[in-house]
Design a protein around this nucleic acid. Structure first.
Lengths: 256, 256
DNA sequence: CGGCCCGTTTCCATTCAATGGTAGGGCGGC
DNA sequence: GCCGCCCTACCATTGAATGGAAACGGGCCG
């Protein structure tokens, strides 16, 4: 009953608060935030007020809280995500204008794909990928493209821990999909994400042939022209890779 | 010589650290970060390690620090910036395809414009606006469009505090520009940002005729066809406004 | 090869900021 | 009008945050 009954530091708690915002929710009640973050109401209240004081959170009328523009600004302006995005955007737009369909760009984060950018025209087919959203590796073409071009050790580790909550897919199946993806140089996933759509993705490779990102499209199942599509994607991916190689470009996560 | 010699809380310090990243810098030395944030080295080191533990920062090889993808993810996925962007993107792409030039989207933050999105084709003219970057209100067409459609009280307050560091522009001149912008319904700025470019922007108005964002383009000074351009922008701006009005849409900053 | 310099990392006694239970206030619903 | 819910404010307690100092590491120069 003193400094932190739960034994975590102030930083931990701030992170808890930020992480408590569920994806897609724009505003939360203070009490709800407290519950979600697992912190006492008093503590949450104090932290929120402090963060709001810096503009990182914005306080609405009745104690409702949302993330502030300032926070987005601070974090975005130096994020590797932005650098990657900037390098890729022109190529993504080219692809999109030719195909008139969804284009997306993802990176590997944990054992999931994190989508950094998505272009979708009105009228294009549904696309589950959301900007700053995640998807499991094994049910997204971008995920397969990324994982198939990771070092063997990483792939092995991924397959070891792999577990499908639905219990439908086994690690063996995923291994085969990865092998096939690697062999082809691109990933395809028909009707998995959505019954009527086809996902296709190619890796963006760095100097060491490691995938730092994946460039993908989602097209209607009917009109798939792989012969035209894949080369276009691969060309774009090379362009992105070249752009990244330039000074100040994006480097993949090289943690300690 | 105990808890915070400088009298600021842990939250304050975390913010200081994040803010210490200068725009565009992808990695910082720990010592540099400590100096920039004005914190003792030990403290900076401890905070950085904690944040890195949560993936918000990433530690490079020799104590160099950068923002983590996870941070971008957490902050982006619920940011009003993303909501606004999502509503605006399709319209921005339309505009861009017709004009083949830069399109940008900004909001008012403090007394500056914060650019939330920018589309730029290769080959289009230079554009100072960077995503998550800022520009002064009075030297950006987006800024004028935004400020000209704020409540009178806000405009008055802005003009009162206005001060051009270069000393060239007076508040009176800005007032006139705002009036002209308001009269016309769009802002134009020729050769100010860049000598050979023309910036044009229109406000995205909410129900109360208040500008929540500004949609702008940057075109070469030579080929300006206002008659075609402005209506196109205004149409797009209305489309964005309509999209925002939908449930879950972007609401402008309504602080306490 | 050795010494030096510079930056990162670890250690630890001091102390005040963080904590959170409790109480007050305001709004809406029954 | 009464009750319940939620935000806000208060305040004694105490352990987490602090930062100077020293150890560590590695790259450069003499």
């Amino acid at each position: 009953m003193a400094n932190s009954a739960s034994g975590d530091s102030v930083v931990d708690r701030v992170v808890r608060v930020i992480e408590a915002f569920p994806e897609g929710a724009d505003a939360l009640q203070l009490s709800e935030l407290a519950e979600r973050s697992g912190l006492p109401l008093s503590t949450t209240h104090r932290l929120v007020r402090q963060l709001a004081g810096h503009g990182l959170l914005e306080l609405g009328v009745g104690g409702n809280v949302r993330l502030g523009l300032r926070f987005w600004e601070l974090v975005s302006r130096n994020s590797p995500a932005l650098a990657l995005r900037q390098a890729a955007m022109p190529f993504m737009e080219d692809i999109q204008q030719v195909l008139k369909q969804n284009v997306n760009l993802g990176v590997l984060e944990g054992w999931e794909v994190l989508f950094v950018e998505r272009l979708s025209r009105r009228g294009s087919v549904a696309n589950r990928a959301r900007v700053a959203g995640r998807m499991p590796v094994h049910i997204s073409s971008a995920g397969l493209a990324l994982m198939a071009h990771q070092p063997q050790t990483v792939q092995a580790e991924y397959l070891t821990q792999f577990h499908d909550p639905a219990g439908k897919v086994t690690a063996g199946v995923v291994r085969q999909m990865l092998a096939e993806t690697r062999r082809q140089g691109f990933a395809e996933l028909a009707g998995v994400v959505d019954p009527d759509t086809w996902g296709i993705a190619v890796p963006v490779l760095d100097g060491g042939k490691r995938a730092v990102a994946a460039l993908g499209v989602v097209v209607p199942l009917a009109e798939v022209r792989l012969q035209a599509l894949v080369p276009a994607l691969q060309t774009a991916a090379r362009g992105i890779a070249r752009q990244l190689a330039e000074p100040g470009g994006f480097r993949s996560t090289e943690s300690v």
